[in-house]
Amino acid sequence: MARRKNTDPTAQRDAQLLEIAQRQFHLETLETRNWDRLDFHDVAVWAIRAALEEAFEAGRRAGVATVPSETRP
Rank of each mutant, 00 (worst) to 15 (best):
I48M: 07
L52A: 13
I20M: 03
I20K: 04
Q22K: 02
A47D: 11
T10P: 09
A15I: 01
A65T: 08
T7H: 09
L17F: 04
E57I: 06
A55E: 00
F25L: 02
V67K: 10
W35T: 13
Q16A: 15
T32Y: 14
G59L: 00
E19A: 15
I48P: 00
E28K: 07
E53H: 08
I48N: 04
F25C: 01
R13E: 10
R60L: 13
A51W: 03
D42K: 14
V67H: 09
V64I: 10
L38F: 11
E31F: 10
E28N: 09
P68K: 07
G63H: 06
A55W: 00
A44P: 02
T29S: 01
R33F: 05
T7Q: 11
G63A: 07
V64H: 06
D36T: 12
A15Y: 04
A47E: 11
P9Y: 01
P9L: 03
W46P: 13
L52E: 12
T10F: 15
N34W: 15
H41Q: 02
D36F: 12
D36K: 12
R49F: 14
T10Y: 13
L30I: 04
R60N: 12
V67Q: 11
R33D: 06
W46N: 14
T32R: 15
L17I: 03
G59C: 03
V67F: 08
A15V: 02
A58V: 01
D8W: 03
R13W: 10
F25H: 03
Q12R: 10
R23Q: 11
T29W: 01
D39G: 02
Q22C: 01
W46Y: 14
Q24V: 05
V67T: 11
E57M: 08
A62R: 06
A51S: 03
E54G: 02
E28V: 06
L17V: 03
D36C: 12
H41F: 02
T66H: 13
V43C: 05
D8T: 03
F56A: 14
E53T: 08
A58N: 05
